Simulated scan of single mutants.
Amino acid sequence: MARTGRPKVELVLSEDERAALEGWVRRRSTPQAWALRCRIILECASGASNKDVAERLGSTPHAVGRWRARFVEHRIAGLGDMPRPGGPRTVTDEQVAELVAKTLERTPKDATHWSTRSMARETGLSQSTVSRVWRAFGLQPHRAETFKLSTDPYFVDKVHDVVGLYLDPPERALVFCVDEKSQIQALDRSQPVLPMMPGVPQRMTADYVRHGTTTLFAALEVATGKVIGSLHRRHRAEEFKKFLLRLDKEVPEGLDVHLVLDNYATHKTPAIKTWLVSHPRFHLHFTPTGSSWLNLVERWFAELTNKQIRRGVHKSVQALEADIRDWIATWNTDPKPYVWTKTADEILNRLAGYLKRIPDSEH
């Protein structure tokens, strides 16, 4: 039976076009969206159907058909923004490719990153043209984000262990995310805070007076979002042991206690190990080194900081601690658990994708 439906547009590549597309696909610095369009065209040129290409590349038949048609009509230029009504183009594909390559692979002599003005001087294009090309390719040289790769030799095992607790907690047990927020400062502004008014935000002086610090030990119950907190003036294994004793009193007997925590030295002292031996229902699960993002209580600490500490004014450590206790009590009247959704395999696969983009990651 003959196939029905709209026939696909025949696509034939010249040697130069194929070389350019394959070069962009191989280049690590090529934007992912542009690389995907290049792969689509290369697959289509092999004679594959839109449906087959979409399945291979994780796209949709509609998107594949659109890029196929655009390439047939406009060639490589069709993989970018469609031509708009107006005068003829004054910027060639070669100039666009050169601009993108310089943005990704070079830096100016007098700066760490390009600006539209410096790139315009470098390429001889107008500043507005540079801006339009950067927007089309999703390039933002002025921005930089931070990241940190764990060097823990047991990284994979620890990720599976902690994420397994989140997604499939053991029966007759409670899972807590535990950490310490140390050196919380009681800060008083050197001059009175000016209240917010219509059209004017709250204003406070940039300088402040320090009145001491405190440390918050916190355990976030994964299932309910409730928090058990304890404030101490020092941050030692002795204080951590006192916090464990409090958890032991507050968790009903007959339930095991699984704690997700980091590799801080106070969590592994001989005194703590001895205490754990005498309290066998406690089980410690350590996150990989340098992977605090895996501990859900860090997200709760961020809320505490943003909503209570950062703009708070405290004339004493006692006042700071009172506000923290009140905030925890208010939180526990309507706790909101943080729901973990990613599996360990999904996390590790995404990390592997990032590592492929780093030339000398050695991972």
Rank of each mutant, 00 (worst) to 15 (best):
V156M: 05
V193R: 12
F147V: 09
Y166S: 07
Q202T: 14
P198M: 08
Q202A: 15
V193S: 06
E171S: 14
F147D: 05
A136E: 10
E122K: 04
A206L: 15
R121T: 11
M119P: 00
S128T: 12
Q183D: 14
Q191F: 09
S128K: 10
G164N: 05
W114F: 03
C177Y: 06
Y166W: 11
P108H: 03
Y208F: 15
V156A: 09
S126M: 06
A206R: 15
E122F: 03
F155S: 00
S150T: 04
P195M: 07
D152Q: 03
R117Q: 13
L125W: 00
F176A: 05
P169A: 13
M119G: 00
R143A: 11
A206V: 13
E180A: 11
V156D: 14
S182Y: 05
G124R: 05
T112M: 10
M196Q: 15
H160I: 02
E145F: 13
P170Q: 11
E180L: 09
V193N: 07
V163C: 00
G138V: 10
P108R: 01
S115P: 03
L174P: 00
L125T: 00
P195R: 06
E145W: 14
H113G: 03
R203F: 13
G164A: 04
P141F: 00
L174T: 03
